[in-house]
Design a binder for these strands. Structure first.
Length: 419
RNA sequence: GCGACGGUAGCUCAGUGGUAGAGCACCUGACUGUGGCUCAGGGGGUCGCGGGUUCAAUCCCCGUUCGUCGCCCCA
């Protein structure tokens, strides 16, 4: 019996885990600069939390949840998205008392039972922020700017944000009807299940990938003509702020999002490097969600970014994040006195150096080969001669120069020349 | 969940109805304590898993699993 990782999951191995660490560190740094604080929520929640919020028409909830009945008879779901759990925690812990603004960020694993593909795993990871308590367009803009800031800092330039406003519930309902009416003839030649989906949520029509369908929809009504004055004004202010911050964006009235709780501003970033899983991140305002979960009416806006997808884009562009960890020195053992040798390693490690050595009693030649491959700048030679004189030989592997330093100054010698 | 294609050494892949190969990587050696180049030698694969056809299958058939691409959906 050979075990393998469950379908749609992956191991993140050394060589790649460094990129993950770097990406997460960068995200934390950026989010904290905007005064967001980290929140961590449980891996699983009461399934109702997601049913209540993500919407009946959303596939994420309809068919992609990992759910089970636990031993106490509770119906549990592994979280398929991050916003609902964060809002649940926000309400449960009274984070936002008295009209405060709460800024939270997260890095979490999510679970969606779909057919796996590159860039679409069953266990996926997202970073995101939620800005809760402000209805001002300034919040929308700050979240969008933070998002572009993050992508800039991981070396993804020239990404364009697509933004749209889908207004409040009422105007969206009116629009929905108008669109449905326009689309009647189109719906007639669709397959029954596809048609049912579109009839239930006509907005789905808009983000189709079918060129054919797109062509039929060129003259479809435009949602922005249905926006109520407040939403329209809000949207304009967001765009004005993005202009002022020099965030490049594209307005696309066809952009709608898959989760039902969005209101007003929605946005996403795509990359052409990603094939059919092109979205790098998605977000927007969700002013009604908190009420839906039993809280006081509280406006909020947030974004979720796919970590795997960001990494795929970096790989596709051939970016190799530099400055990743490696060892500083490789210690070559040429004495039978392995205890003394180990003590020296212990000392240097206590002093904070990242070092390695051969554990297999291999030849000097082999040890130097390992030193070379390790990428370390130095090989430190400890043999019987060195033990008697109390001074190690340090070889700079880049230029071949050798010098002799007292045992006590090995770490200084390694570090000293680092800058 | 639907359709198509794929799974051979650590990696990238070739190959044939008679139980397998290359390149790279790895290990050892080329005068006793010195790497990156070169040369010589070496280890390593139940050819995804299970069943069937056959005298015989890695190669044919069926099933299954995992992946890739598209759809769906989304991050």
């Amino acid at each position: 019996m050979k075990f393998q990782a469950p379908r749609g999951t992956e191991d993140i191995l050394p060589g790649k885990s460094e990129v993950w660490k770097w990406l997460e560190d960068t995200f934390r740094r950026v989010a904290e600069r905007y005064a967001f604080a980290e929140i961590r929520t449980p891996t699983f929640e009461d399934i109702e939390l997601f049913k209540r919020t993500a919407g009946e028409t959303s596939d994420v909830v309809q068919k992609e949840m990992y759910d089970f009945i636990d031993k106490g008879g509770r119906h549990i779901a592994l979280k398929p998205e991050g916003t609902a759990p964060v809002v649940r925690a926000y309400l449960e812990n009274n984070l936002g008392g008295q009209g405060q603004i709460t800024k939270l960020y997260y890095i979490m694993a999510l679970y969606r039972y779909g057919r796996p593909q590159k860039g679409r795993l069953r266990e996926l990871h997202q970073t995101g922020v939620e800005l809760i308590g402000s209805s001002q367009p300034d919040g929308d803009a700050e979240v969008i700017e933070l998002t572009t800031r993050f992508y800039e800092e991981i070396g993804l330039h020239d990404l364009v944000v697509t933004v749209n406003s889908i207004g409040e519930t009422e105007c969206r309902n009116r629009y929905r009807e108008a669109l449905l009416e326009f689309a009647q003839p189109i719906l007639l030649d669709m397959k029954p299940d596809e048609r049912a989906k579109c009839e239930k949520n006509p907005l789905r029509l808009l983000d189709t990938k079918s060129e054919d369908l797109k062509a039929k929809l060129v003259d479809a009504p435009d949602i922005r003509e249905y926006l109520e004055a407040d939403s329209q004004e809000h949207f304009e202010k967001v765009l004005d702020r993005l202009d002022a911050l020099r965030v490049s964006y594209r307005v696309d009235s066809r952009l709608v999002r898959g989760l039902d709780y969005y209101t007003r501003t929605v946005f996403e970033v795509e990359s052409s490097e990603l094939g059919s899983q092109s979205a790098l991140c998605g977000g927007g305002r969700y002013d009604k969600l908190i009420e839906q979960l039993g809280g006081p009416p509280t406006p909020a806006v947030g974004v979720a970014m796919g970590i795997e997808r960001a990494i795929l884009v970096l790989e596709a562009l051939g970016r190799n994040p530099s400055g990743l960890t490696g060892i500083e020195a490789f210690f070559v053992c040429l004495t039978e006195d392995r205890n003394r040798f180990a003590q020296i390693l212990q000392m240097v490690r206590k002093e904070g150096c990242k070092i390695d050595s051969d554990l297999e009693f291999r030849s000097a030649k082999s040890q130097f080969r390992q030193a070379d491959k390790s990428g370390a700048q130095f090989a430190v030679v400890i043999g019987d001669d060195e033990l008697t004189t109390g001074a190690a030989k340090i070889k700079n592997l880049k230029n071949g120069e050798e010098s002799t330093v007292p045992m006590a100054s090995i770490s200084n010698a390694i570090r000293g020349s680092k800058q």
